[in-house]
Amino acid sequence: MDLDLYVPILAIGVLGAAFAFFSLAASWLSGPRRYNRARLDSYECGIEPTPQPIGGGRFQVKYFITAMLFIVFDIEIIFLYPFAVAFDSLGWFGLIEMGLFILTLVAAFAYVWRRGGLEWD
């Protein structure tokens, strides 16, 4: 079996794991251990974190819908970018196909919107 091809991949994997382990170990060894409330809070880009129920609580299921919606647009971008690159050679075919694709996404978006998926409460 010709597995030589996979040796570099294995090497990268090992390097990655070693780096992760090394940095964790380094910070654990070198860092000071002074804990206060701010340090124990969740990190939210420097903003005061939203109050959580006692014991950490669960994420609201509403986040899930938001995440799903995000994916809809995420996928749109994934396809839009290569389309833009090849726009010239695809011509009308590409334009119409992309229009149909976006329409499909709009249908999903419209469904979420009409069903109240965009309302938080």
Partner: peptide
């Protein structure tokens, strides 16, 4: 199917 979703919405 896609049209069906739209119908569902409106």
């Amino acid at each position: 199917a896609v049209v069906g979703v739209t119908l569902e919405a409106f």
